[in-house]
Design a binder for these strands. Structure first.
Lengths: 230, 230
DNA sequence: AAGTGTGAATTGATTCACAGCC
DNA sequence: GGCTGTGAATCAATTCACACTT
């Protein structure tokens, strides 16, 4: 994973720290909102506040893309939106297949942020024959048996897994075999994938458990005597 | 944020790094699965594989909880499940209110991992009067106007926000005013909260954009000549 | 005067490698 | 002999503070 040889030509984009990449989408969205309210220029302080980070971090992050600000003035909103979008690959069109048309799959299909931000849902897939033919957010549901054909004919490279845990690895394997190279996984199992395939796990249960940990610490702090006694 | 005075009695739990806390739920789930398949003892190597991490990291993580393994043998599955659950606060019962009963809210309400893992959904809230009275996963939908009363009467401390972006901050403020101290936010806006309140943002759009970034890098690597020319 | 861009310092996380125990 | 637990070393991310530009 870390032994990938670094192509010197790609040095700039290669050099963007992962933590920065994860924040660029947040900056992008904050800038879009600012732009819509008519703001033409922002300081790092203002943008940082809108994005929920501190300003040195924001400046350091943006410095990895290049020098797109003006000293004494700030950043041109539209120009920065474009530069971030280009860096993230949002200026091109990504074909996305969603597997699993339960409540979560429907929520994803209807999520406003996808269409119009470079992501096009080209297929919905479900194992239940009763759902096949149905349309969700204007996209017809295809049967799981036709998964490979759908991925290949649409040239989809991003797959979203919203199926029950036990089915997830198998769906993952089939998506990859058909040509998908990036996967967003909502099933509560860690997927095993070959090198070169990226996976991001989004796990609702994990998030709640992290909150519970902090919640417990607050409770302990509030009643130290009781906590010590337990 | 870092100037919180450290209570020496709480030193052990205080000392658990945030990155470790975020992985404990994953270990917990992997252990539950192993236990269900009849495994009584695991080595750090086996558990690490099941959880999708490497074994030194797993051992370091577990070492923050205490010495719960046996050298030369491994970890007792049931014992470790209990210790992690206790550390995460899963041995007690957390009352959760979900605000927003769209597809995402329904998906969350039906998510199997909540009930039976220490989380109890005590209320569903929606702004649409047509949804009020309806039951989702056995829980009745309450009108947004009764949010405060619901939180107070159920003593809920965890709130899940699954409403459209523009409504999120207001819902957040009301949850906190009513007594919620931990928030899981699915709306695509960074929430502003007072000190002492924990927020975790889960952002579907952000996750896809991170994948797009890596996808673009792969595409660049595959056709270096073209990429250089663009 | 205002505000970016960035080396240097710091803090945090991961990996290494091996001492210690069963 | 096998495997945990952990200091030491490495690597990554964050914060600081200020030189530099408009």
């Amino acid at each position: 994973m870390s032994r990938r040889p670094v192509d010197p030509r790609a040095a700039r984009s290669r050099g963007i720290p992962e933590a920065t990449v994860a924040r660029l989408p947040v900056y992008h969205r904050a800038l879009l909102a600012l732009g819509e309210s008519g703001v033409r220029t922002v300081s790092s302080e203002e943008l940082a506040t809108a994005a929920g980070v501190n300003s040195p971090k924001l400046r350091k992050d943006l410095s990895h893309l290049g020098s797109y600000g003006t000293r004494g003035v700030g950043y041109d909103v539209d120009y920065l939106i474009y530069q971030i979008a280009r860096e993230l690959g949002l200026t091109q069109d990504w074909a996305v297949v969603i597997v699993g048309v339960g409540n979560l799959g429907r929520a994803l299909a209807n999520y406003g942020g996808f269409a119009g931000r470079g992501f096009r849902i080209v297929g919905l897939v479900d194992a239940d024959p009763a759902r096949v033919g149905e349309q969700v957010a204007g996209v017809p549901v295809t049967h799981l048996g036709r998964l490979e054909g759908l991925v290949q004919s649409t040239r989809a490279t991003i797959g979203v897994i919203a199926v029950p845990g036990p089915a997830a690895q198998q769906v993952c394997d089939r998506l990859i075999a058909a040509g998908v190279t990036s996967i967003l996984n909502f099933a509560p199992v860690p997927l095993v994938v070959p090198a070169g395939v990226d996976v991001r796990e989004v796990d609702l249960g994990v998030e709640l458990q992290i909150l519970a940990f902090h919640e417990q610490r607050k409770a302990d702090a509030a009643v130290p005597a009781l906590a010590a006694g337990r």
